[in-house]
Structure formats: C-alpha cells, structure tokens
Write a protein that binds this DNA or RNA. Structure first.
Lengths: 151, 151
DNA sequence: GGTGAAATCTACCTAGG
DNA sequence: CCTAGGTAGATTTCACC
C-alpha cells in the first residue's frame, strides 16, 4: 500500500504536476531515479489518473460561477438517463452530482454573465419534462479553491 | 486576446497537461515550435496558473464526499476572518465559497467515512461561536467530474 | 518555421539490506 | 529477493536563427 513517502509525493504532485524527478527527490529525500520510479508506480496503479493544466477563469470571461440544485418531478430510469445526457451535453456544467436529501442533482456551472446562467435555467433545464424545480446560488467569493485532497 | 487556436490549446491542456509540444502541434495544426510558443505565452500571461496531478480519491480511502452549508448567527468582519481561518486549517475541506441566498458558506469536503464527516460537523463547525446551523448533503454519485472550463 | 544545445526522462545496471 | 542509487541513450524543451 501507500507509505508516508507516497503520500507526500502525491501532495507535492497535486500542487505541481511538472516538478522534475530531480526536484521531487530533493523534496522527498530520495534520489531522482527513486522519485521517478515511485511516480511511475503510482501512475501505473491508477492513483494518479492524469495531469491537467489549471486555468484562470477570469480572463476567459467566465465571471459567473454558480451552483444549481435540480429537483425532479418524475423519477425513474428514463428520466435519469435523459437528465444525464442533458448534463453531459452542456459544457457550462463542469460538474454534477446526485445527493442525499433535498435536491436530486447539484450542478456546478460557469457562465460569462447572469444572462447566460438564466438562459441555462429557463431555456434548458426548466423546459425538460422531468424537471420540477430549479434553485440557483451564485458564488460571491471563492475562499478556498480546489485544494489538494487530504492525504 | 485569445483566438480560436488558443482556446483549443487550453481545452487540450486541461485534459492532458503533459502533452508534448510536438503532439500539441499535431492536434492544433501547428509546428511544434509554434505550439510550444503559444503555450509559453499563455503561461506567462497567467491564463494557465499551474499544472496539477489528478488523484483518484477511492484507493486513498476517501470514500465520502459531501457538501456542507454553513449558516452564521453572528455576522461581521471578525466572524468572517475567524471562519476563514477555520476553513483553511482543515485539510478535509478542499473548497469553500460564499454564496448569494440561503447559506453563508458552502464547503466541499472529503472524508474517509461518515464518522469523520460527523466529527467535522459536530466537533469543529458547530462549536464555533459564529456558526448557527449546518446542513450537509452527501454525494451519492458523481455524474460529471471536473470537466474542463467551457471555452 | 526550423535548429541545436541543454535539460530531462527512463530503461538498464550495480550495490546493499 | 526487494529496495535504493547511478548511468547513458533517447526524448523534449527553448533560445536563437
């Protein structure tokens, strides 16, 4: 399984996916070859799924970030498949979850302005036959932003 | 500003942050040197903030993902600073937002089990003097997972 | 858009517990 | 036998043309 060095390695790579094996070795107290080998092992085991560039949304004109809760009227497998297709077809929905409790779906959404958010709600989500109610909350401030997973 | 090639480049790098300039050029229909140069420009302009390894939470024992809504009783700058410190001190809180509407804070949380989630709520959040009420929803299924930003 | 020097990765090899 | 460290050929980047 994972020892303490592996965990520190994962923490480091979450913060900097481009660190060289040399530097990684210095951080972990290993040689470059050992550090590289551990990284390869964790990649092969699927613990590291991939590497991603992190983009600043502001200069792209994505000013509005919101969470949208969707309540269904009709449940059942057809409606679920249908909603799933809808969610995957809209690029402004970047994440979607099903939850315990109140709402059936929670969507994380990025749009250039309020108008685009309202269009998503009123022209895309609400017209869907299975959707009963939609409730959106707009992000005012992101206090803590996509921190590394706790290891 | 950003042209269409830049946007495709950002989309590509969000999916694969380790792609070589050679491959990137093939995807974009550019030479390797031009592709690498565009990437450098977007990094220098701060559009690409950094690169991060993406970790699979399951094998790490992070089985529970939840969203926690925090309602404050006392508002004001002191309480806000205090809560902010609290949020940043807990590694199981990976993201935090202030929102319009109902709740004052929305927290995204990862824990190994329900016990740890309940400890966070009852031993960390609720005892805080400014916190009035806490409401948590546990993620059952992640339908769409951290898709690239819509460009 | 192309090129070459410098840096980096990684497969292979050797040493030690 | 398993884990750690070193080395050299192949690959990639990036400053310059």
């Amino acid at each position: 399984m994972l020892d303490d060095v592996d965990k520190r390695l994962l923490r480091t790579l979450q913060r900097n996916g481009q660190i060289t094996a040399q530097e990684l070795g210095e951080v972990l107290g290993l040689s470059a070859s050992q550090a590289g080998r551990r990284r390869q092992r964790l990649e092969a085991e699927g613990l590291i799924t991939h590497y991603a560039a992190q983009i600043d949304p502001e200069p792209l004109g994505l000013s509005i970030q919101a969470f949208v809760q969707v309540h269904l009227g009709t449940h059942g497998p057809e409606a679920a498949r249908d909603i799933s297709r809808l969610i995957h077809s809209r690029t402004e929905i970047t994440s979607a979850w099903t939850m315990t409790g109140e709402a059936d779906y929670l969507l994380r959404v990025w749009t250039p302005d309020l108008k685009a958010l309202h269009r998503l709600i009123h022209d895309v989500l609400l017209p869907h036959p299975a959707v009963a109610r939609v409730q959106s909350q707009i992000v005012m401030d992101q206090l803590k932003t996509d921190a590394p997973l706790p290891l």
